Simulated scan of single mutants.
Amino acid sequence: MLTLNSLKIALLLVAFLIAMFWLLGFHALKKYGDSIYANMRAIGPRPVPDQDYQFLENNPRWHKDVFEVEPGIQLHGVVREPENPSPTSPWLLLYHANGRVEFSSFPQFVSDLLDEGWGFAVWTYRGYGPSDGISTKTSLRQDSVRMAERLQQQWHVDAAQVRIYGFSLGTAPATYAAMALSERGSPAAGVVLVATGYRPPFPSSLVYNPLTEVSIRDKITSPILMIHGRNDRSHLLENAVADFTALKKADADLLLVRAGHNPIGLDQVKDRVRKFLESPSSRM
């Protein structure tokens, strides 16, 4: 039979174990939580690579492109060549959002924004679509630059021909790539950032906003167009406005629209993006 003292000791032990479990859980969540969350959303029912590339059969200018970033880690992507490729053909390099990615959805995205004279390229991050591995904040930053390098080296595209487009999660790698190209003295022709303004709950968050760092944003020399939905509940409007104000760039512009987190299908947005892509240095 338990005595009063032994019962107190047992209760203290249970309380101690609960406290330790909570502290360890909080530490793990702080260190890995957002990355785990993002990758769980990304992986979901991942498409089989062969199935995801079937649309290429009816689109002769679209090509599968796979390259290795580390031993055993390959990034999968698709590239659409311009109708009449030339050294001056413009290209759009897309950094996609979080969640499931299907390559077969990109022809519609391209036809909404670009004419036949444009090239287009997108690669999925680690753990997204058919790409190998699991994304981290570090790998996302490194791979964003490798994607830009892949476009330049494999497809012989000069940085001056490239417009970078990032949506939601993709605004982080798009920002990194824009900074890297600027630092090398060959900046992209323009940068479109849609639905930035995220403020991560944990320092290790995969969904991250590098525009909050002066050492990153001040190195970007490309013209920037930011677009944000006034009713965005995940990436708050006031944060996006603060990001834009902090840029302090004469060749940066901010378009606010009546929309939630995903405004890219609005005619107003598509028209503004088209004009920017054609002439990034012109404010409209």
Score class of each variant (00 low, 15 high):
118 W>G: 13
118 W>H: 15
118 W>P: 12
120 F>V: 11
120 F>N: 11
121 A>I: 13
122 V>Y: 08
122 V>F: 08
122 V>K: 08
123 W>I: 00
124 T>E: 11
125 Y>G: 00
125 Y>M: 00
125 Y>F: 07
126 R>N: 03
127 G>A: 07
127 G>D: 06
127 G>K: 08
128 Y>W: 12
129 G>P: 02
129 G>I: 01
129 G>D: 01
130 P>D: 05
130 P>S: 09
131 S>D: 06
131 S>A: 08
132 D>W: 03
132 D>E: 07
133 G>S: 05
133 G>P: 03
133 G>H: 01
133 G>K: 00
134 I>L: 14
134 I>Q: 10
134 I>V: 15
135 S>T: 01
135 S>K: 01
135 S>E: 05
136 T>N: 08
136 T>P: 05
136 T>D: 09
136 T>S: 15
137 K>M: 04
137 K>D: 03
138 T>F: 03
138 T>Y: 04
139 S>P: 03
139 S>L: 07
140 L>I: 07
141 R>M: 10
141 R>K: 15
142 Q>N: 12
142 Q>C: 02
142 Q>D: 10
142 Q>H: 07
142 Q>S: 09
143 D>N: 08
143 D>L: 02
143 D>K: 05
144 S>V: 08
144 S>Y: 09
144 S>W: 06
145 V>M: 13
146 R>I: 03
146 R>Q: 14
146 R>W: 05
146 R>C: 06
147 M>W: 05
147 M>E: 15
147 M>A: 15
147 M>L: 13
148 A>K: 07
148 A>D: 08
148 A>P: 04
149 E>V: 09
149 E>M: 10
150 R>F: 11
150 R>D: 14
150 R>H: 15
151 L>H: 14
151 L>W: 15
152 Q>M: 15
152 Q>C: 10
153 Q>G: 05
